Amino acid sequence: MKAKLGVSALVLLFLGGLWLVAAPFAVGYQPRGAAYVDATVNDLWLGGSIAVLSFVSLVIYAADALRDLARRGKHADL
């Protein structure tokens, strides 16, 4: 149960980070062709950081889960 809650939180953080990256362009407060406004730069850095950190955490969790499954499989053969 705790694992599902943690993975769900990481997925939501990842999606939130992606939204922060896309928001300036989707909502339209970044004028097309203009230099990036401060809000856009902030959203890109913060959203990108959140997305990357949550994605790396998900990959580490998945690798650990696969390692645990492989370890259980080895012990089942004995």
Rank of each mutant, 00 (worst) to 15 (best):
L12K: 10
A26E: 11
L13E: 03
A23Q: 02
D68A: 13
A39D: 14
G6K: 07
V41K: 13
D77Q: 09
D77Y: 08
A62F: 10
A65G: 03
V37K: 00
A35F: 11
D38K: 08
W45I: 12
F25H: 13
G28F: 05
A35N: 07
F25A: 11
R71D: 11
D43P: 00
A70I: 12
L5I: 14
A39L: 15
G33M: 03
L10Q: 05
A26S: 13
I60G: 01
A70L: 14
V41F: 09
D77G: 03
P24A: 08
A63E: 08
L18A: 04
R32F: 12
D68N: 07
A34M: 06
D43T: 05
S49D: 00
F25Y: 15
H75Y: 13
A62D: 02
G73D: 03
S57R: 04
T40D: 02
V27A: 12
R71L: 05
L12Y: 09
V7I: 15
S8I: 11
G17Q: 03
T40W: 03
W19P: 00
K2Y: 08
A51C: 07
V7F: 11
R32L: 11
A63K: 09
L13D: 04
Y36K: 05
V27Q: 14
L46S: 00
Q30R: 09
L44H: 02
L66D: 05
L44D: 04
W45E: 06
V37A: 02
A76W: 06
A9F: 10
V21M: 15
V21H: 03
A62Y: 10
D64W: 14
L20T: 05
L13S: 05
D68P: 00
D77A: 13
R71N: 07
R32K: 09
K74N: 11
L20W: 11
R72D: 03
G48Y: 01
K4W: 13
G73I: 01
G73V: 02
G33L: 05
L20M: 14
Y36E: 09
A70Q: 12
S57L: 15
F25R: 10
V21I: 15
S54D: 06
A39V: 13
G33W: 03
L10P: 01
Y29V: 03
V21Q: 14
K4Q: 13
G28K: 04
A63W: 11
V27M: 13
D43N: 15
F25S: 10
L78F: 12
A9M: 10
F14G: 01
A62H: 09
A62V: 07
Q30F: 03
V59Y: 09
D68F: 08
V11M: 12
V59C: 13
Y61W: 13
P24Q: 02
V56E: 04
R72F: 01
G16L: 09
A51F: 08
P31R: 07
W45L: 15
L53F: 14
V27L: 15
K74Q: 10
Q30E: 09
G73M: 09
A34H: 06
A35S: 11
D68H: 07
D38T: 11
D64C: 14
V7C: 10
G6H: 09
G48L: 00
